[in-house]
Nucleic acid binder design. Structure first.
Lengths: 127, 127
DNA sequence: CCAAGTGTATTGTTGTATTGATACACATGG
DNA sequence: CCATGTGTATCAATACAACAATACACTTGG
């Protein structure tokens, strides 16, 4: 995996270390990161995105305690071997659930009918 | 408007005062809050949700500087008269755009096809 | 008139979160 | 063996949100 595959938005309200963890969670669940695959080093990611190495380390540490990553002493971090190549579609869909709930709530507050929302999302999903 | 119409999540990462502002923005854009309608007082909202009055005042102040609300001296805050009853569907949809973009990005990272995402959202939107 | 209701400015405190700088322990590989 | 590469523990700096307690200016309604 390349450090450029991570999307970092330093100005977003969401803290950087959490952006990284959640992104890893999705990339692993979707199978874009295979079990055993080595991640870019803390300093590599930090250098590429011009952020602090400790911020990346914090993300890696959290991902490890979550069971996503494994420490290979002296080598770095790798996708945990216990992770299957890719979770089932329903499991992956479940990861989107909170976001879908919030979206539905906002649409309701806006008094938007379902149809235009679905139409717009369809377009964004590239169909 | 009743104080109970506002949804406050004290443990959410998003600060309370911003939860209030964004909720007002949507409720006004959708027409659930009509122009001229009086809002519940700072102390009323604070009491109902067990939060600090100054937190509500901060939200009201921001909403005013954004042109959403108007100060009626001695009476309280009201939905700005310049606000039409409800914005066009496209304008309201535009308020959802950032969230839709993020959702699409996450679905892509999860390697989820469009169909199950749309199916789930359709259900949540109550169709 | 005046009590009671508006919103708000002020000051201070508390708790928490994020990021940064530095130094360290460890394993690898030539 | 040791330079070089891992990750990370530690401490400090900073920012922010929320709360608390007042005090104030203003308008309304009896």
């Amino acid at each position: 995996m390349d450090a450029s595959l991570l999307t970092i938005q330093p100005n977003a309200p969401e803290p950087i270390y959490r952006q990284i963890v959640e992104q890893l969670r999705r990339l692993i669940a979707g199978g874009q990161l295979a079990a055993g695959e080595l991640l870019p080093s803390v300093r590599e990611v930090a250098g590429f995105h011009a952020i602090n190495p400790m911020t990346v380390s914090r993300a890696y540490g959290l991902a490890e305690s979550e069971g996503l990553l494994e420490r290979l002493r002296g080598k770095g971090m790798a996708v945990a071997a216990t992770r299957r190549a890719s979770q089932s579609e329903n499991q992956r869909l479940a990861l989107l659930e909170p976001q879908l709930l919030e979206l539905a709530r906002h649409a309701r507050e806006l008094e938007l009918p379902a149809e235009p929302v679905l139409r717009r999302l369809t377009k964004l999903l590239g169909d």
